[in-house]
Simulated assay, not measured.
Amino acid sequence: MSKTIYYEEYELGSKRETTGRTITETDIVLHAGQTGDFFPHHMDAEWCKTTEFKQRIAHGTLIFSVGIGMTADVINPVAFSYGYDRLRFIKPVFINDTIKVTVTITEKREYKRPSHGFVVELVEVFNQKGETVLICEHLLLVEKKSQ
């Protein structure tokens, strides 16, 4: 879906939430193959039994990628992703955990070009227990309606 939202139209405190998505063993195996990250924390079930978590954990980068993808349901032709700040992996995600994402507009600030401004979105990924598993800030560079 495409929807034009200019810098001035973003409201601090506004939120959007995704539906859930269950992380599978296939997700982990595919991500390992795509990234080359075959560390035993993700791939070796027997070794993981000797660790604190007692089972394989999903790659943090997998949860980041899936979580961000879950929020990408609207194309704004006057905005683009500038990047991500303060990315933190708070808790592990296990095979068959279901994640949901909440995005909250937390800040708006000026950009060096007066025709655009930054919109900061707080991205919070939660597991099925409501525990925060990942958090970061998404920076959007958004065109201004009035200049």
Results as ranks from 00 to 15, higher is better:
42 H>I: 05
60 G>C: 07
146 S>L: 13
10 Y>M: 01
111 Y>F: 13
143 E>N: 08
94 F>T: 07
126 F>Y: 15
112 K>P: 10
106 T>P: 07
4 T>Y: 01
12 L>D: 06
16 R>N: 11
123 V>E: 06
12 L>N: 01
143 E>T: 14
8 E>V: 01
33 G>E: 08
142 V>Q: 09
1 M>L: 09
37 D>A: 06
82 Y>K: 15
26 T>V: 11
104 T>G: 00
76 N>R: 10
13 G>N: 03
30 L>N: 11
126 F>V: 07
108 K>P: 03
33 G>S: 05
83 G>W: 10
10 Y>L: 00
71 T>K: 02
100 K>W: 05
128 Q>H: 12
116 H>T: 12
4 T>G: 00
8 E>M: 02
37 D>Y: 05
64 F>L: 11
40 P>M: 09
89 F>I: 04
127 N>C: 02
98 T>W: 02
90 I>N: 07
22 T>A: 03
119 V>N: 10
44 D>R: 09
137 E>H: 08
9 E>L: 00
94 F>H: 12
131 E>C: 04
80 F>Q: 03
53 F>V: 14
76 N>D: 12
71 T>H: 06
85 D>Y: 04
63 I>V: 15
85 D>I: 00
39 F>L: 11
38 F>Y: 15
9 E>T: 00
46 E>S: 09
120 V>H: 10
15 K>V: 14
84 Y>D: 08
145 K>M: 09
80 F>K: 08
95 I>Q: 06
90 I>A: 11
117 G>D: 05
143 E>S: 14
7 Y>D: 05
26 T>H: 11
114 P>W: 03
109 R>P: 01
77 P>Y: 08
111 Y>R: 02
58 A>M: 08
137 E>T: 02
46 E>F: 06
72 A>G: 09
104 T>R: 08
132 T>M: 13
81 S>L: 12
33 G>A: 05
28 I>H: 02
107 E>K: 15
110 E>P: 02
55 Q>L: 04
130 G>C: 09
141 L>S: 03
66 V>F: 02
31 H>S: 04
129 K>G: 07
109 R>K: 15
93 V>E: 09
55 Q>E: 14
84 Y>F: 14
35 T>R: 00
63 I>L: 09
88 R>P: 03
106 T>Y: 06
85 D>F: 02
80 F>V: 10
20 G>C: 03
57 I>N: 07
123 V>I: 13
30 L>Y: 09
46 E>V: 11
71 T>C: 08
64 F>E: 02
118 F>E: 03
57 I>G: 07
142 V>M: 07
72 A>R: 14
111 Y>N: 15
121 E>A: 10
8 E>A: 03
94 F>P: 04
53 F>M: 13
36 G>Q: 07
113 R>S: 15
41 H>Q: 12
121 E>F: 03
56 R>T: 11
82 Y>V: 00
136 C>I: 04
95 I>H: 01
96 N>Q: 14
96 N>C: 08
139 L>H: 11
15 K>A: 01
36 G>K: 07
43 M>C: 06
103 V>W: 01
25 E>D: 14
74 V>S: 01
51 T>Q: 09
30 L>V: 13
97 D>E: 08
144 K>P: 02
29 V>Q: 07
120 V>E: 08
43 M>E: 04
141 L>K: 10
25 E>Y: 04
121 E>K: 12
18 T>V: 10
74 V>Y: 00
109 R>W: 01
86 R>N: 14
13 G>Q: 03
53 F>E: 14
